[in-house]
Amino acid sequence: MSKTLNRRDFIKTTSATTIGVATIVSGITLTTFANANKMPVTNEKRWGMLIDTNKLTEADIDGMVSACQQEQGWGSELHSTGNQKPGWIKKLKVRDKATGKISNLALMCQHCEQPPCVDVCPTNASMKRKDGIVLVDRHLCIGCRYCMMACPYDARSFVHETLSNQKEHMPRGKGTVEACTMCVHKVDKGEAPACVASVNSDAVIFGDLYDASSKINQTLKTIQSAQIRADLNLNTGVRYSGI
């Protein structure tokens, strides 16, 4: 418990002193990808996202969801109903019980540093890359769904029906589990994830959390941000501000 809270407290204190820097750039920039193309996967990087719910409009979130669907090819399942439909990223509306403040946010796999889904997966199909991106290896997944039981963010979906016309980079298949990949196929080419690219403001920032010169790193240093269910100590790669 203390570890994460300390981190948040730390961010809070820092933000008080350096608040001025918070509003520097606007317009989505991907400067973190300086030397693009086929960057090696190393643990010197940790890919992450910062979602500012004060700036993110509902239309932005809808755009993120459809960008994800288009990029990864989910959402047009014919037979799955209700909760059987996949939801790699979804729009959430939450109200603070004390203040009554309503926030809208996009929720996807949080790319936990200590991912429960990876811990419980019997076959190592759920795995975390060195750069922090959590993925499912579709050739190892036996469809036991234990990872779905373990994920605190309801981030994973089980493919409930036969699919056709899958994207080449995303071999989705019946009987296996899937979730947000942080568009690893794009990130590895130096591009931003589809959802991030779809937003026309800096409401969503993507980048290397470790890189002190990255926008995400600098922004996190200056504003107050939070992890969802920080009490679980999973040290998520996706952070939120304004909630």
Partner: peptide, 22 residues
């Protein structure tokens, strides 16, 4: 009931020793 019972062999050969399921 597995999504891919045909991959039972994977469950028998690939072990994640952190997993209580394994």
């Amino acid at each position: 009931d597995l999504g891919r019972p045909d991959r039972l062999i994977v469950a028998m050969t690939e072990y994640n020793f952190k997993s209580i399921f394994a």
